[in-house]
């Protein structure tokens, strides 16, 4: 079943076209990679998907419960409510808040109690806060962060900050998860562990994942299909094996070494 369809997506910043006529299609439950050299427009695609930028033209359709929703022009918080969550290339945690609060904040969209209930700390407030706290702790346990719940996010080691960002994205209870270079800055051991984690959370949370990553060991290993962007244009699409042997990709991005390897 189709979950996301991006059709002829274009974004221009003044004279610069960052993304041109990009078509991407995601089936439910897939794990798809989006790769390309620096400045190819990968993060721009994420920003268009999550409403940070409004597309110059093109359609983004998100399929949920048999209905099609256009994400075009929606504000980011609305898109999050529809079930699209993301992490950021340069970590954007709430640095001066605790690990626990980082996750709790992301559960905001499911909160039903109103302003009055929160001002008076009514029974419905207490009940829901307890649910939020329990669910947050459960998520933190999955990422082995439960013992650091009262630590400030900025004090976590780099790898754990990346993990916390994924935990926070999952706290919004998404159907589609967009990961922007989750392995950036990690050592090979951490990267291998992250690769397993991504595979595992997809099963556990029944997710569809779109992954931007420079580390080929991650992308080639876990992605079912890969899209390749270069200068804002989609130059290839296919399975890891097809991408590996695609001459246009090798020319644009992977280089001689990889083709010989």
């Amino acid at each position: 079943m189709q979950l996301l369809a991006i059709e002829k997506l274009t974004k221009s910043f003044g004279g610069l076209t960052a993304v041109l006529n990009v078509n991407i299609e995601l089936q439910q439950g897939e794990l798809i990679g989006l790769i390309g050299p620096n400045g190819a427009g990968k993060t721009t695609v994420f920003n268009l998907l999550t409403g940070v930028y409004v597309p110059t033209s093109g359609n983004i359709t998100f399929c949920k419960d048999d209905s099609k929703i256009s994400l075009h022009g929606l504000r980011p918080h609305k898109i999050c409510k529809e079930g699209v969550a993301r992490t950021f290339q340069n970590i954007r945690l709430f640095r001066d808040l605790t690990v626990f609060d980082n996750v709790r904040i992301a559960m905001h969209k499911n909160v039903k109690y109103g302003l009055l209930a929160s001002l008076l700390h009514s029974p419905s407030y207490r009940r829901e806060e307890k649910t939020i706290a329990d669910a947050s702790m459960e998520l933190l346990k999955i990422f082995n962060l439960d013992e650091k719940k009262d630590e400030y996010a900025k004090n976590l080691p780099y790898g754990e900050q990346r993990h916390l960002e994924i935990a926070r994205a999952l706290a919004t209870n998404p159907e589609l998860l967009l990961l922007d270079e989750p392995a950036a800055g990690m050592n090979p051991a951490e990267t291998a562990q992250l690769t397993e984690l991504i595979k595992w959370i997809r099963e556990k949370f029944n997710l569809t994942i779109l992954l931007i990553e420079h580390d080929m060991s991650v992308v080639m290993k876990i992605c079912e299909r890969i899209y390749v962007l270069d200068y804002g244009i989609l130059i290839a699409e296919g399975t890891p094996d097809e991408i590996r042997s695609n001459p246009r990709v090798i020319e644009a991005y992977l280089g001689e070494d990889v083709s010989n390897a």
Binding site: H77, R86, R92, L93, R95, D96, I105, A106, H108
Partner: peptide, 11 residues
């Protein structure tokens, strides 16, 4: 803390 991240987390 971070307006862009807050917005992306559904706020």
């Amino acid at each position: 803390e971070d307006e862009i991240a807050a917005e992306a987390m559904g706020i």
